[in-house]
């Protein structure tokens, strides 16, 4: 046993670079933002920030566009998370059942994750183009021409679909590992009892990987709440604000209109909402475990 490696001094030394960066680039700005949210600070004016107390938060309560952006974000989460989870669960189950070449499929399914968000978004914007996009070309034999990104009712689900294609590889990989961790003896016992493939999945695999599914669910909910790049690059928040999510609204408030105080307040409200969802998930998963 190396005594020096276990000493608190060495631990502090090793942690210091990360801790310093964490403090400077995360904790510091977070609390600076909290402080800023109580000020009216319009960088455009060149004037110093002015204390407004809870004024920015009160304004946010009456800001219909912010409410709408939260609603759009909620809808995005509502559409994307189940789709993403089912897709990755189905793919993981399928690939784990393959007798060989699992590695090839694993790589292929994970490949989109490696794409940069700009590349993925621009690629799908072309796919979705009403007049000469790939999807409408495929639908042409049926006489269909869908305005994927230009119809307010279709734009958000279209972005969700792209997000599922782009991100499901992460959950897929985690779930695949979970499937592979299930003891083969459990499947053997189920086979002896005459279980079908579906029954083995439903009564053996699923209960075993449930904590991992919960973890993936939480990851996806959190990342979906923070969605920004896809709608920003594919629709710019349009048509008619149908895809303007909370993060884009905050970005525009802060970095287009330079209302830094108000943008900070909006960020904190969003943070609190995401925090509440995480808390609910924790309480829910805790109850689940206690129930077992």
């Amino acid at each position: 046993m190396n005594r020096q490696a276990g000493s608190p001094g060495a631990a502090v030394l090793f942690l210091l670079p990360f801790a310093a960066a964490f403090l400077v680039f995360f904790v510091g700005p977070t609390f600076f933002g909290l402080g800023m949210s109580f000020f009216d600070w319009e960088m455009l004016s060149g004037l110093p920030p002015r204390w407004v107390g809870g004024g920015n938060y009160l304004e946010a309560l009456q800001d219909a566009r912010f409410h709408r952006s939260l609603l759009v974000t909620g809808l995005f989460v509502f559409i994307t998370v189940p789709l993403n989870l089912f897709a990755s669960l189905g793919l993981a189950a399928g690939v784990s059942a393959l007798p060989k070449r699992q590695g090839v499929y694993r790589s292929l399914i994970y490949l989109p994750v490696l794409l940069n968000i700009t590349v993925a978004s621009l690629l799908w914007r072309w796919f979705y183009n009403t007049k000469f996009g790939l999807f409408n070309k495929l639908l042409q034999p049926w006489g269909l021409e869908l305005p994927w990104l230009t119809d307010p009712a279709l734009a958000l689900p279209s972005i969700s679909l792209m997000t599922v294609w782009w991100t499901s590889g992460v959950s897929f990989l985690i779930l695949l590992t979970a499937f592979q961790q299930v003891s083969p003896s459990l499947y053997e016992a189920a086979e002896i009892d005459g279980a079908t493939g579906w029954q083995k999945f439903r009564f053996v695999s699923l209960p075993q990987i449930m904590p991992v599914v919960g973890f993936c669910l939480l990851l996806e909910v959190l990342s979906s709440f923070k969605v920004f790049g896809q709608p920003f690059l594919m629709t710019g928040g349009g048509p008619e604000g149908a895809t303007r999510v909370a993060m884009q609204y905050i970005y525009e408030t802060g970095f287009s209109f330079f209302r830094m105080g108000y943008a900070s307040a909006l960020s904190w409200i969003s943070f609190l909402l995401i925090f509440c969802v995480t808390l609910l998930h924790r309480i829910g998963s805790g109850k689940g475990r206690a129930g077992k």
Partner: peptide
């Protein structure tokens, strides 16, 4: 305008 990219339509 919602179902047509006019510049590309013009170029085509």
């Amino acid at each position: 305008p919602e179902s047509n990219d006019a510049w590309i339509g013009f170029r085509q």
